[in-house]
Design a protein around this nucleic acid. Sequence first.
DNA 1: GATGAATGAGAGTTCATTCAT
DNA 2: AATGAATGAACTCTCATTCAT
Lengths: 207, 207, 207, 207
Amino acid sequence: MRVEQARSRTRRQRILDGAALTFSRRGYRATSVDDIAEASATSKGGIYFHFPNKEAIFLALLEGMAALLHDRMERAMAEATGPEAKLDAALLTMLHTFGAHRTLARLFLVDAMGANREFSARIMEIQEGFVALIERQLQEAIAEGALPAVDTEITSVAWFGALLQVVTRWLLAGKPADLNDAYPALRALLLRSVALPAANRLQAMTA
Amino acid sequence: MRVEQARSRTRRQRILDGAALTFSRRGYRATSVDDIAEASATSKGGIYFHFPNKEAIFLALLEGMAALLHDRMERAMAEATGPEAKLDAALLTMLHTFGAHRTLARLFLVDAMGANREFSARIMEIQEGFVALIERQLQEAIAEGALPAVDTEITSVAWFGALLQVVTRWLLAGKPADLNDAYPALRALLLRSVALPAANRLQAMTA
Amino acid sequence: MRVEQARSRTRRQRILDGAALTFSRRGYRATSVDDIAEASATSKGGIYFHFPNKEAIFLALLEGMAALLHDRMERAMAEATGPEAKLDAALLTMLHTFGAHRTLARLFLVDAMGANREFSARIMEIQEGFVALIERQLQEAIAEGALPAVDTEITSVAWFGALLQVVTRWLLAGKPADLNDAYPALRALLLRSVALPAANRLQAMTA
Amino acid sequence: MRVEQARSRTRRQRILDGAALTFSRRGYRATSVDDIAEASATSKGGIYFHFPNKEAIFLALLEGMAALLHDRMERAMAEATGPEAKLDAALLTMLHTFGAHRTLARLFLVDAMGANREFSARIMEIQEGFVALIERQLQEAIAEGALPAVDTEITSVAWFGALLQVVTRWLLAGKPADLNDAYPALRALLLRSVALPAANRLQAMTA
DNA sequence: GATGAATGAGAGTTCATTCAT
DNA sequence: AATGAATGAACTCTCATTCAT
């Protein structure tokens, strides 16, 4: 990598960091490009050198986060064996990641919607990526006989929605105070919903 | 009621109708007060006579819709007996209502988020109303011994999230083409998640 | 005319006046909408209530001036009899009008060009209006036998160009100091160019 | 000349070529320095090494073209004998040159105006150069007795204006389709305007 | 000589809100 | 009650110019 590229990447990253900060503090709309410039110690022109417009910054941020989470979940599930363990891995990864990056979670779950009509399509695609990840696991488990046959499409969508809602509620209503507190009940609920007995694994998990 | 009041209520309603139309067509942000004025055959000044600001129109709309849906669900569940029947009632009411008012659903689920930071708190409250409604039913069923003891809080939140996600996906990704197609699998999933056997009831339902 | 219309027209006119002033002082590009707002004692928003954009103000100005000049020339020529007298009428009207409104002339002749690519088409149309006016007179004079047959198209274009250049030179180079000083030689030149003897009429004219 | 100088001249010329291309395609204002850099396969910094600012590029271009045309006209007239022949030479040179370089003509005639207030003064000077060229010829012809005494100043200005207008109209209105079609009528008109019989020479010309 | 990342002033335009009528 | 002209702050985006490398 050449030096100029490295420097450019630094600046670009600084802009993304500044944008993440201000977006999550004030929301997408309420954040002006000037705000981002200030938060990233750059100039407005500098921002427009690296990104074609404000929306692109948001999208870059969103996609970066989605890719990170997606990757983490995938890796965690790959290391786990058996449906319950895989669910645990995915669930905990999600709760931990969102729990540790409250501001980014807000960005991802709240601001992403409604900000712009063209946005929502992209958001949906990103969400579908996660749904697909879940669905693939379910299908494999069913194929292996580790899981009774269920409608994997609706199940994965519903699971994802359930998770998002729990996180969103934590974000906006502050309940539960610690996002991880939702884990046991959520785990049990999801396992039951695919007719898996949850009790013993839960013990193993928390042990 | 005096005549002017009646007329005023008419005007107010016309504004709400016009707003619902334009909001759902273009989104909250992209809709100007001028647009609403035009769509409701009023003037800008007239709108500001009836509502303190643009946000209030959106909120009034949102709360009206929420109250309607809340009421319908409550009534439908009151008429049903037994947990499965109540779930069916609620589920079908929701799917039918959203399915019949696609544009309003979009407003409710997509635009409501992210539009404004102060908004989201109110949105959360509205959502909590639905969650509470579900939770109450679950608690009653458990008290009656019709349902095994589960974490009603997480369950109701998760159920609501699952539903929203299914509807949102239908709105933004067009899947499934007919929202009602999601019903059987969703029903089975939710029942299973609270350890209720779904099979026979489903047959009874569709019979 | 209703009162509101009258008031609106007043404001609209004030904007046009302010725009004429600033455009001719600083040029089209260098004039900001803020400048126009200040010069017309209005607000930026007020300007955008009356005109869709900056360009429309310029065009309105341009077309107003063109219509005025066109009208004046047409009327002056209608009152004159015979080709020489008509030429005199037109020529003097043009020189007097431009001479009396130096700033508007500048706008018309200098800024109109080059300001915007889409502009020039409209400018050409306006110019063609004047060319057509001249050509019509030439054709009538030829039809009446008062003028030998000449190529009326090229003649009218060339005459118009000659006039514009004399005025432009006066504007930008300050030569001649008094625009009217160009009249006698210009008159003689144009008459000669269509094979009319100029001498005696000129004497009558200046007498 | 050292190698670097040669290379530098090459680069400078490449910039001028690229600028001519983009200026004439999009107009002066709409052309950014980035556009020029791209069109001349240089960098922005490189451009600012060779020219102090954007305006200077335009001016250099303009003056180069003017000098070329001036030179061609001067040479063509020097080779011709007699007023009619000289007029023919100049006229044809101008029409041919502009006709062959439509985009440059546009630059010269349309964009040059209005681009900038300080510009117009320079443009006027350039135009005065052509006017002076014409005037000198007229004066010589009068001195030789080949032409009756006329106001050479106004005549040369008017001639130049007539020519410009014919060319501008061709550029912007597309009339006449072929610029050379304007030649015979224009020639006749101009000759008549200085009391020269045109007919026989025209025949000689086209023969 | 050449590069292109960075700057920052400034542009046109939008629009929620106000208020005289 | 209703109107719509008027306001002005705020926005996104552009671009000529600079300068470290």
